[in-house]
Nucleic acid binder design. Structure first.
Lengths: 153, 153
DNA sequence: CACGATTTAATCGTGTACAATATATTTTTG
DNA sequence: CAAAAATATATTGTACACGATTAAATCGTG
């Protein structure tokens, strides 16, 4: 016998990698990345960069802080990523005159013009998932609840 | 009108970040990582390192290749990760005498002894997910199907 | 048996992630 | 109003992740 105090002992079968929800999420995230790569390569974007562009296409100019809240990423990740998007000519960055602490990220002409490619990208990925709209919605909603639980510490 | 040829145009509402299944997966993977961090820190493990240990606890000695197949990671990721596990004294690495191309990864005494901590780790994470066993199984199976679809290119 | 093709790991370069720290700019308070 | 606290971003160090390349060993076919 291995464990009695802290709840039930978990049977070995349940400890297998394939049974872990965390691994299913982890491996699916990688699979999505790989599915996106050939599509996004055509636009010179990485997947996290594409997410930033999605937020900007949806909401327009935003401070770094807000982008970070949307994507759940901190400045240590976003600063270099935004620098690369700026070098690619897709976004601009400027200190907010009202509050010099903030850096406002905006779309350039080139970055805004790229928005019309979203249909192509989302259609290709939608195809690759092999899921109908109900299954996508089901899975997405379950994941959102799970994420909220995990974050609620 | 934006798009008629390539299937239907996707309404703007569907393009929002929160509606994307890929982002739900991406953000949940990060949330899992953060939930694991304080637990795994106590054992000096990162989350990917923990996954490698899970595989070794389950199957014993394995070549790098097989570990990569289990986790869907390549040698560019595993080589440095395994080197750190070796430096931490949890695993050993040795060329297979039968086939010198292969490196067999094995558990040290210390690494094998750590297995009894799995109950604690999995219980803590299970708690953090806030999901009952049915919901975990449901979500895991849906993700496994999704991953298979995405990988089937 | 030889020699080219394949297999297996390691290495290198680029790009996330994140904790910890640094810096500059508000905002709050004594 | 000045010092302290809070806020926003950038930087640094460590650790994945992956494509591309390299190097060593084995295999396959002539």
């Amino acid at each position: 016998m291995t464990n009695k105090v802290q709840g039930q002992a978990i049977p070995d079968e349940e400890k297998r990698l394939e049974r872990q929800l965390c691994f299913a999420v982890y491996a699916t995230a990688h699979a999505f990345n790989r599915a996106y790569k050939p599509i996004l390569d055509r636009f010179g974007l990485t997947y996290p960069q594409y997410l930033v562009m999605l937020v900007l296409w949806e909401k327009g100019c935003l401070p770094v802080k807000t982008i970070g809240e949307q994507l759940d990423l901190d400045s240590g990740t976003l600063s270099p990523l935004l620098k690369r998007l700026e070098q690619a000519g897709l976004i601009g960055r400027a200190r907010d005159p009202k509050d010099e602490r903030q850096v406002i990220v905006s779309l350039t002409e080139k970055g805004a013009g790229m928005k019309c490619q979203v249909n192509t990208i989302m259609s290709a990925i939608g195809e690759a998932t092999g899921c109908d709209m109900d299954e996508v919605a089901n899975l997405r909603d379950r994941l959102q609840r799970l994420r909220a639980n995990l974050t609620a510490e």
